[in-house]
Write a protein that binds this DNA or RNA. Structure first.
Length: 287
RNA sequence: GGAGGGAUAGCGAAGUGGUCAAACGCGGCAGACUGUAAAUCUGUUCCUUCGGGUUCUAUGGUUCAAAUCCAUAUCCCUCCA
């Protein structure tokens, strides 16, 4: 059985994954775009060796941060594991909806080939070209990145269908509480030495995707570049984390068949039991 | 006590007689998503039964018309005593 644990940043996905894996002797596969990178530990809230409790973890902490790992790479890696462990129970944990979807649905990533340089075109021109290619193209003029991608793609993907049988467990809590958790977690990361962690990469002059787009990293880069104060940096990390959490909800709610569970923070075991009950229910229903 | 400056939507901030329910930014809320996805982008944000209703510190006034002009009060800031 394939189980996916999703939810906004900070709800407690990691903890849940361990608890579930312990029960069913499962293996855990990361589905988080940033936790794949080596050395980005504090800022990505990556699970520690100790916390793993001996459970096999895959696709964590294995990519050089200088490398720009993409969805296509992830799809390939995740599919290999799905094949290798097809007789085992697998748990995907992570907050990157697209990665999960690319692994489990029939998303297709063709060979990259960039024949045309679009940098000289204005957005309006790009949109016109997109509409010429497909009159139904609904990408917004301002979304230059996606306009270019649309033109680079040879064919438009059709609606994706799932390739595997899986269940998606979503962990959630009310918005106010979530934002509070996020704000506090960022402060904890600072205490744990996030600044030092980021500084290491900054001093190596690494400007890869992971460092310039990852939350907690890009803000500190701006701080080291003396573009803002430490206080502003912390607030920006908190703010960007909150915004990210919101976007995650939007993706999960609309792109994946999520069964949501409200996390009980006073007694997490109750939430675990609720989830286990649900899984058992689904198992018997399918057999 | 005297002389100035200010009070605008959740916050910051434009607007200085009509085109103002009020630019813009932030925050909030909602959405899109097939190779940067912790990314990129969009919509919305006084109330509303969508006919309207109530706003720019308060109260009065001038005017056909006031966030904008006048008077008084309250609070805040700067300077002189």
């Amino acid at each position: 059985m394939i189980l996916c644990i999703v939810g906004p940043t900070g709800v407690g996905k990691t903890k849940m994954s361990i608890e579930l894996a312990k029960k069913n002797n499962e293996i855990i596969i990361n589905s988080d775009a940033m936790q794949v990178y080596k050395g980005l530990n504090i800022g990505t809230a990556k699970i520690t060796e100790e916390e793993k409790e001996g459970i096999p973890h895959f696709l964590f902490d294995f990519v050089d941060p200088k490398i720009n790992y993409t969805v296509a790479d992830y799809q390939k890696d995740a599919r290999e594991l799905l094949e290798k462990f097809k007789n085992r129970n697998i748990i995907f944990v992570g907050g990157t909806g697209l990665y999960l979807k690319a692994a489990l649905y029939d998303y297709q990533f063709k060979e990259e080939k960039k024949l045309i340089d679009y940098s000289g075109y204005k957005n309006e021109e790009l949109l016109k070209m997109c509409l010429k290619k497909d009159p139904n193209c609904s990408i917004h003029v301002n979304n230059r990145r996606r306009l270019i991608r649309f033109l680079e793609r040879e064919e438009e993907p059709i609606k994706a269908k799932p390739l595997y049988d899986f269940k998606v467990i979503g962990l959630t809590t009310n918005r106010e509480n979530l934002y509070d958790i996020i704000n506090k977690r960022v402060l904890k990361m600072i205490d744990m030495g996030l600044e030092k962690e980021v500084r290491y990469f900054y001093d190596l002059n690494i400007r890869s995707k992971a460092l310039t787009t990852g939350i907690g990293y890009k803000e500190f880069y701006a701080y080291f570049d003396q573009k803002c104060s430490l206080d502003e940096t912390i607030q920006n990390i908190q703010k960007n984390s909150r915004h990210y959490a919101k976007r995650q909800y939007t993706f999960f709610n609309h792109q994946l068949p999520v069964k949501w569970f409200n996390v009980n923070y006073n007694d997490f075991s109750l939430t675990i039991n609720e989830v286990i009950d649900y899984i058992e229910q689904e198992k018997t229903r399918n057999s």
